[in-house]
Simulated scan of single mutants.
Amino acid sequence: MRDRLPTGVDVLDRKLDGGIPAGSTVALCAEPASQAELLLHELTATRGTLYITLGRTEEAVADSIANSSTRTGEPTIRHVSGDAPIDNAAKLVSALPEASNLIVDPVDVLERESHDRYRNFLNELQNHIHNTQGLAILHCLAGNHLPQGRDTTRHMADVVFDLETRVGSDSIENRLTVPKFRGGRALTDVVKLELADSVAIDTSRDIA
């Protein structure tokens, strides 16, 4: 079994037998209005991290991490913009050192590029992450208008995390499922998470 890399979320790592196999690419799919960023923030505390932002500015991401009440590290943050986002992102990925984290947030911008160019980008990313025994997290925004490359992301990813946020009249439920897990065992149950100021297991209600 490949070495496991912790996600920084203790309750999740226990369920995943210690974490995610080194060299894996993970698709984290969550709604834009969810607190999925807490999962990304806690990941930065585990090892050196390159945080590629394709939406918010470097300053906005840095402020968000600095003001987070959960455990965080000091990631290198780079904003990718312009007419060639895949080329710019690929240059940053190619320089990623050994045993590092890569966060791409959100990957939607790249998923809207041509199919062949995006697929080639994912192949090169996965090859580099595998060779350096690192961990890549692709933050995929779930919603009504998914990018054309979303199926490609989920197909090529080694691990898929689906975070569903349900807003009720008096409560918010966050349900995490792991339907795909190459190099390990997919979770057969739903994990209820509390996503407030940190990530924890929600034990207040049973899964219906």
Results as ranks from 00 to 15, higher is better:
135 L>C: 00
66 A>T: 08
172 I>W: 10
4 R>C: 04
139 H>W: 00
164 E>G: 09
108 D>M: 05
157 A>S: 15
113 E>S: 08
84 A>H: 15
127 N>I: 11
52 I>M: 05
161 F>D: 04
111 E>W: 05
198 S>H: 09
8 G>P: 07
165 T>V: 12
6 P>N: 04
3 D>H: 12
121 F>Q: 07
67 N>H: 15
193 L>M: 11
77 I>P: 11
151 D>M: 12
26 V>L: 02
39 L>K: 07
134 G>A: 09
87 D>A: 15
168 G>D: 02
111 E>Y: 04
77 I>F: 10
103 I>K: 03
3 D>I: 11
160 V>Q: 03
44 T>P: 01
202 D>E: 07
171 S>H: 15
103 I>G: 00
8 G>L: 01
193 L>P: 04
135 L>W: 04
112 R>D: 14
63 D>G: 06
199 V>F: 12
94 S>D: 11
122 L>C: 03
176 L>T: 01
46 T>W: 04
186 A>P: 15
207 I>L: 12
33 A>E: 14
202 D>F: 04
57 T>H: 01
160 V>W: 02
72 T>D: 01
175 R>V: 13
89 A>C: 05
186 A>Y: 03
158 D>P: 00
186 A>C: 10
86 I>P: 01
16 L>I: 11
40 L>H: 07
178 V>W: 05
151 D>L: 14
29 C>R: 14
86 I>V: 12
19 G>L: 02
156 M>D: 11
89 A>W: 02
132 T>F: 02
11 V>G: 09
118 Y>K: 07
164 E>L: 13
110 L>H: 02
190 V>I: 15
34 S>K: 06
36 A>K: 04
105 D>N: 14
32 P>W: 02
10 D>Y: 07
8 G>W: 01
32 P>K: 08
91 K>C: 10
110 L>K: 00
18 G>W: 02
9 V>Q: 03
28 L>S: 08
43 L>K: 05
52 I>V: 11
193 L>T: 00
68 S>Y: 06
49 T>E: 05
163 L>G: 03
9 V>K: 10
111 E>K: 05
74 E>N: 13
159 V>S: 06
196 A>T: 14
198 S>E: 08
174 N>R: 02
53 T>C: 07
170 D>Y: 09
162 D>H: 09
102 L>S: 06
182 R>Y: 07
93 V>H: 00
24 S>H: 11
26 V>Y: 07
173 E>C: 03
197 D>A: 12
154 R>D: 12
143 G>H: 06
82 G>K: 05
52 I>P: 01
31 E>P: 02
67 N>F: 13
129 I>V: 13
166 R>D: 15
102 L>F: 09
78 R>K: 13
30 A>L: 09
88 N>F: 10
105 D>F: 06
121 F>M: 06
83 D>P: 09
94 S>K: 09
129 I>K: 01
51 Y>N: 03
79 H>F: 11
170 D>Q: 12
161 F>S: 08
188 T>H: 13
84 A>C: 10
154 R>Y: 10
59 E>W: 13
142 A>K: 13
42 E>A: 12
91 K>P: 03
126 Q>W: 06
76 T>M: 11
59 E>Q: 12
20 I>F: 01
199 V>G: 08
200 A>G: 13
33 A>F: 06
78 R>Y: 01
7 T>F: 02
59 E>H: 06
23 G>A: 08
89 A>V: 02
